[in-house]
């Protein structure tokens, strides 16, 4: 346990070493999550459009309009 706390202390520079790793992780993972989330959202919308197209309804709104 003493080993672990000396490691955590980083020779007295814990206040600089750990935040730099933490901020790096937050920024990089944040960008990854945002990118993934955007992609999922876009793909979902595309899938919705595809389904709307395949059932013959041109737009989502005019689904109720009978097919001529």
């Amino acid at each position: 346990m003493g080993d672990f706390s000396t490691w955590l202390a980083m020779g007295g520079y814990a206040a600089f070493v750990w935040p730099s790793y933490a901020i790096t992780a937050v920024l990089l993972i944040g960008l990854l999550v945002v990118s993934l989330w955007n992609l999922r959202r876009g793909e979902a919308e595309l899938a919705r459009n595809d389904r709307a197209g395949r059932t013959g309804a041109p737009g989502r709104r005019d689904r109720k309009v009978p097919h001529p």
């Binding site: 990118s35 955007n38 992609l39 876009g42 919308e45 595309l46 459009n49 041109p58 737009g59």
Partner: peptide, 28 residues
């Protein structure tokens, strides 16, 4: 991942353009 998102966005935009121009009839 981001490039895929951009491609999806481009497809969606193309779809919206054809729908917006009253093109559903043409699509059918």
């Amino acid at each position: 991942l981001r490039l895929r998102h951009e491609i999806v966005c481009r497809k969606l935009r193309a779809l919206r353009l054809t729908q917006g121009m009253g093109a559903p009839a043409m699509v059918e």
